[in-house]
Nucleic acid binder design. Sequence first.
DNA 1: AATGAATGAGGGTTCATTCAT
DNA 2: TATGAATGAACCCTCATTCAT
Lengths: 201, 201, 201, 201
Amino acid sequence: MGKIDEKKKQKQKRLLDSAFKLFTTKGFQNTSISDIARKASMAKGTFYLYFKDKYVIRDHLISIQADNLFKDAEQALLQTDITDFTDQIIFILNYIVDEFSKNKVLLTFISKNLSWGVFKDALTHPSTEDELNFQTIYQQMIAQTPDEFENPEVMLFMIIELVGGCCPNVMLSNEPVSIEEFKPLLYQAVRSIIEGQKKKK
Amino acid sequence: MGKIDEKKKQKQKRLLDSAFKLFTTKGFQNTSISDIARKASMAKGTFYLYFKDKYVIRDHLISIQADNLFKDAEQALLQTDITDFTDQIIFILNYIVDEFSKNKVLLTFISKNLSWGVFKDALTHPSTEDELNFQTIYQQMIAQTPDEFENPEVMLFMIIELVGGCCPNVMLSNEPVSIEEFKPLLYQAVRSIIEGQKKKK
Amino acid sequence: MGKIDEKKKQKQKRLLDSAFKLFTTKGFQNTSISDIARKASMAKGTFYLYFKDKYVIRDHLISIQADNLFKDAEQALLQTDITDFTDQIIFILNYIVDEFSKNKVLLTFISKNLSWGVFKDALTHPSTEDELNFQTIYQQMIAQTPDEFENPEVMLFMIIELVGGCCPNVMLSNEPVSIEEFKPLLYQAVRSIIEGQKKKK
Amino acid sequence: MGKIDEKKKQKQKRLLDSAFKLFTTKGFQNTSISDIARKASMAKGTFYLYFKDKYVIRDHLISIQADNLFKDAEQALLQTDITDFTDQIIFILNYIVDEFSKNKVLLTFISKNLSWGVFKDALTHPSTEDELNFQTIYQQMIAQTPDEFENPEVMLFMIIELVGGCCPNVMLSNEPVSIEEFKPLLYQAVRSIIEGQKKKK
DNA sequence: AATGAATGAGGGTTCATTCAT
DNA sequence: TATGAATGAACCCTCATTCAT
């Protein structure tokens, strides 16, 4: 019956929502499965029908968020007529940074869960769904640019670490400068990295 | 009495040593205060006479490690006659990366405790002791170079995030490449960043 | 409808088979009703249509096994021309011991379920089915022997306790001696008991 | 301080007493550590300071009981002037059976815990204390009798299984006969076994 | 008759923290 | 100062049982 499946989906969603709120508010470690179930108005045991443990529900949440974020960024990029590789990368980074700026909750969530690793994985590795992901798109972008790079994969890795390491700190603490002051310097750094990794002919 | 103070220091050191070993071996979360006290051959209650909780002892440990690491790097730099700013930065980064490579325990410790933030703080902010720290030395280095930078503090911040984000991953997982393959690409990136942040005259 | 009854019997059998395998493998305590139903490819709720709980299905299983074991032993005895009472008893005991030796699973099952009591009941008391059981046959054997015993029922009880108490231990742990070394000593003891219980004329 | 040790001993005793009562009343499986602690008026966690789990406290209890029982039986034997080996064995068996008859609680306890195995171990193997145990005394008795046996250890094993298997059933259910009717038949059987295991010269 | 989602009590276990000694 | 026994809340997880479908 579709009816039952519908209900199950809804329950799962309720659990995901509760977990998200609690992880964001109290942090991952300080949230118990009891808490999640209670907030979702279910019995504790019911949680286990949907997720094996806290880690699974967290990773699930992060995957969803990362997927959405990236899909939006990609859509936005397609609406533009940016063709230069570096500009495209900057556009996507900027889109994501802005998104985080607007949606501090998401940022807090990922930060409070100490799970940048998982987030990066979700961004970089094929998600459960068989859709495009950043990795794939990036490779297409690389293929279309006339430039050649020493090691494009490592380059992406470094850019993500740089942006993913700096931005949360800046956005959450306004240190060492505000995000608006920071952005041009960051993008300059990204441009420099890309430029520097081009193969010398 | 200096004697009593001496004894206290020694006990504190025993606790710190025990905690370090346990955090490194079993991870921060899986180490209890009981464990630490037992390994230090003290009663559980005694722990509370020296540290408020696990978090305090962890942060203390990290500060010490970071301090030592940096002092060593600085000493090593003084033994050389490198004068160029960028080269100096690279030298220090490389020293630290090599130290981590040799001393995986420290890397594991910081990584297992998910406490890069604390480590970076220790590196960047004045430590409890009134000694020199990276921040100070860095400012001296900046002062001595003829180049001018948009925002030296932000530049250091970005470099630390880049190196501190990438290296643990690479060293612990050999992905996306081995640390030896990675180093030249990383240092190239650092050079690019520094170059790109120079004020255009 | 015989058809529906047929189906029910089959489902019941599937449950019994699953339970036997699981009890044998994981032990009684560690097997849940969920496990049994899953292994029988049924819904959990269905279990309750056939058995009240785990204990009922366990006792049912033991009865079946004991019944079969005994029927086989009796058949084997009929194939021989042993007429002496004591020899007949020893033959049956030996048959059952050998059967357990060959079929460690059954032994493990009964042993893991700590249910010798149930097994002995099944052997001694009329089973649910209205067939012959050990008790009946034993009485016939007693009737045919010229000897008279103080209390034949008690004698059988003691023999079963002796054999049923010793053999599992010996077979499963090889202590205090191996089953092959043990058998002659045991049968000697059984012969002594029978001899000793004969009425003095 | 003796004071603290005294208190600890008392607490342990309270736990042992509570456990004994509960195991006897509700059975081992149906007794939780919570129950035991509650009945002993302690916090649940305190239980774990004294015993690792339910099994340990049960075995501890059984050891104590078996030890006491045997020490009493031995004392009683020394008060008599029975010198014949078989008579000595029967005396001890009878003493223990009588003790069980008088003290049904102990019998129930062992029976409800399905732990004849542990009880027999306690009777047969050296206990934690470095005192005499049945095994040792038995060997002395064997040494002093002029008769020789095929395998004295196996003989003891069989006797214990026979008595330990039959008596609880008889005492708790009065089946197949009352314990008073049963005793002479049982002792006759024991005598027969001993006689039958003597080496033929 | 059959299902399996939902329940929630209950299990064992850990551990930060307190406090009398 | 130092101890370590005692606490009891909190954790995760299991599972027999119910009941709407």
